[in-house]
Design a protein around this nucleic acid. Structure first.
Lengths: 251, 251
DNA sequence: ATTTGAGTATCATTATTTGATACATTAGAT
DNA sequence: ATCTAATGTATCAAATAATGATACTCAAAT
């Protein structure tokens, strides 16, 4: 179990309990935790108990199910303060959201996924509105591709060849050559538009936030209904404002 | 150190490292972690290393400072899915935000504090816009008082007598009798308005979300500028819409 | 009434954490 | 540029604290 003498196995196991929860498993019993973590029953018993006492897990006294506690929100709060991009981007995104009236998100690269760090929903946003913290394979998203487009050729080719590219929707493009073409196009254009890659009937427009080294680790992405918009209209009406927004965040 | 044989001290210590980060300490060196946690240097070294390897802490290779990782956002994402109130309230809050055009928050009771679980900012929201996950002493907030007002007399009297009531701003009311009067008024009125209790020049209007047992564990709160609004105008223009909103969340 | 499954409690064993110490590297001062 | 203090890293013997097998309790289902 121990590879490095600095590795504290007990702590790692405790974190595995936290990771056992996801959108499909929002509350877990002791035995479910055993199944999902693969740990011994006794260990799970002790670790879950400790997480509960320490305030990281709530527990329903009747069903005895463990649930994420408010502490999980507090951690996100601290993350927001810790990431300077958030405070820089938020006022600009509010402004954008107000003038355009459509849902706007801030995405960041996180390994081979993107993670949504901010979302300002608009009035016709469907349920999955709370996607802050959600991870999606980068290649499947406009944000991911447009960020890759700012990297070196070696880097984006490697990514297009090896990063995960599951069929999130029936319409998700799983042909890596097509994805790479899209990245190459984004290098010229400075933006990417996709449709129905992550969500059906959703058009995504993304523009990178480019750092001082020319590389982007973040992007601003607008979610639009394909029932209301087509690519041309997006380019005409949304893109110019979005480019202003990202420029002001970089500045 | 161990009181209960089910308590796993190592895990608890690891969590202390996570809690060492807050809005004033967004990145920490090894020695700073030692200071803030009160643990041994060797222990902190191992625990921090483990948290880093397990993806809970990022590390700047130059400064060697530990920082919250994206995982902190992922946890909030899971929390959102785990709390049924979130998905019930969000569409209604979006609707409210759209018709009223002012910042609206969802607050939940968390011990003797409230915690902000959702925020939809408006365009003139000042910086501290990202307050999701922030905890504030319940007695100092309109949300906290209006929730207390739905509890039994014994309960709210106990709370008003013992819960923390620090002077968050120079204008925060620290007279517990006054706070209790406000709670009592909220029992009659079904809402509370405060001014400058948490933030100067901020008027807060809060209405409880009452559960089937008649108790409220959550409240919807609107943040308004006292430069634009006075209490009368708030009651006339905002309150009726807000009451509709909370009613629809309960239904 | 009996069985099953889930949660809880206990304890000897030993693997793991511990914390002291020594070493390496960095940053700050002169 | 050189030295010094502070910070970070690595190692290891000692013993504490986690382990996991087992037995017990309880509730729900047959």
């Amino acid at each position: 179990m121990k590879q490095n003498s600095l590795h504290v196995g007990t702590l790692a196991k405790g974190l595995r309990l936290l990771r056992a929860f996801d959108e499909a498993h929002v509350s877990l019993t002791l035995t479910e935790l055993v199944e999902r973590t693969g740990l011994e029953k006794s260990a799970v018993q002790r670790l879950a108990h400790t997480l509960h006492v320490e305030g990281m897990l709530d527990r329903d006294p009747d069903t005895r199910r463990y649930r994420p506690s408010h502490a999980w929100l507090e951690l996100a709060y601290v993350y927001y303060w810790s990431d300077p991009l958030i405070s820089r981007a938020l006022p600009k995104l509010i402004e954008f959201s107000r003038t355009v009236g459509e849902t706007v998100n801030l995405a960041q690269m996180s390994g081979d996924h993107i993670i949504y760090a901010l979302r300002l929903p608009n009035h016709r946003t469907h349920f999955a509105a709370s996607i802050v913290g959600r991870r999606v394979p980068a290649l499947a998203t406009a944000s991911g591709r447009v960020m890759l487009a700012t990297r070196s050729e070696a880097e984006y080719r490697e990514a297009c060849a090896t990063w995960p590219l599951p069929a999130v929707t029936p319409l998700t493009i799983t042909d890596r050559a097509v994805v790479e073409d899209d990245v190459i196009a984004a290098r010229r254009n400075g933006y990417t538009i996709t449709e129905a890659q992550v969500l059906l009937n959703e058009i995504s427009l993304a523009v990178p936030i480019i750092g001082t080294d020319g590389r982007a680790d973040a992007a601003v992405q607008v979610s639009l209904s394909s029932l209301t918009y087509d690519f041309d209209r997006v380019r005409r009406e949304i893109l110019p404002v979005l480019l202003d927004t990202t420029a002001s965040i970089q500045g």
